[in-house]
């Protein structure tokens, strides 16, 4: 699949610079969100309350970046009236940062739940499951941001496909937790917290997948939301 978008060389160099700045702002926001997620996962697996609290209190940085990028997008829409690929870039960015901000919220949740779980007797096997899911989701987010940076449709499609595995893993963790809760009702409180962590991770996978859909929209001009991966491939041929 060719990625034939050339996003340089406007006659207005200032416009070029504005769009470039917007793209690098999104990458910076993506980097921050990745760090929040990584820290959330460390807090979860090491029961380090210091990191957990840091994650829980740093979300404001992600939020303020979202507001700032949103404002820049509004300025470009109002002053430049972008068309074609430029319009798709601005629209894709407005949507991408919403998903990034929600990933930030989920990472914050992980931090808060880690603090609550830190001093409870949660078995290491559950953390192992969560860690595996977490690593998977972290890779997805990383690939989604790479696909955005390189405007790589093939990478974006692969990342969307990977979300199915994340969903399967989430279902599997939920089944285990339900079994545990039925076996020992005293475990319900902790099991619920673990399930919320799993849920947060699964949602991050969905948001990463959304970002990939915007990348495909940006590069190919095709809206492939709400259709199966096979159909997406057909549409993109």
């Amino acid at each position: 699949m060719d990625n034939d978008l050339n996003l340089t060389q406007h006659i207005s160099r200032r416009y070029n610079a504005e769009l470039e700045e917007l793209r690098s702002d999104v990458m910076a926001m993506g980097g921050l969100v990745e760090k929040q997620l990584a820290d959330g996962l460390i807090a979860l697996s090491t029961s380090d309350t210091e990191i957990a609290e840091l994650v829980a209190t740093s979300d404001y940085k992600v939020n303020s970046m979202e507001v700032a990028i949103d404002e820049k997008c509004n300025q470009i829409l109002a002053r430049r009236q972008p068309a074609a690929s430029d319009l798709r870039l601005v629209v894709a960015i407005i949507k991408t940062i919403t998903d990034l901000e929600r990933i930030g919220d989920e990472a914050e949740k992980l931090g808060q739940l880690s603090v609550q779980l830190a001093d409870k007797s949660v078995t290491s096997s559950q953390f192992a499951e969560l860690r595996h899911l977490g690593d998977h989701v972290k890779t997805m987010l990383n690939n989604a941001l790479d696909a955005f940076a390189r405007m790589d449709v093939a990478d974006a499609l692969r990342t969307i496909e990977a979300d199915k595995q994340v969903n399967d893993e989430f279902e599997s963790i939920m089944r285990q937790l339900i079994t545990r809760m039925m076996e020992d009702p005293r475990e319900i409180k902790n099991a619920l917290r673990v399930s919320w962590c799993a849920r947060a991770l699964e949602r991050i996978g969905d948001h990463a997948s959304n970002i990939c859909e915007y990348v495909i929209y940006l590069v190919k001009g095709k809206d492939i939301r709400h259709i199966s991966v096979d159909k997406m491939r057909e549409e993109l041929v």
Binding site: H10, I11, S12, P82, A83, A84
Partner: peptide, 9 residues
């Protein structure tokens, strides 16, 4: 067409 309507060279 893309170049013209987006103001590129």
């Amino acid at each position: 067409t893309e170049n013209y309507i987006t103001g590129r060279f």
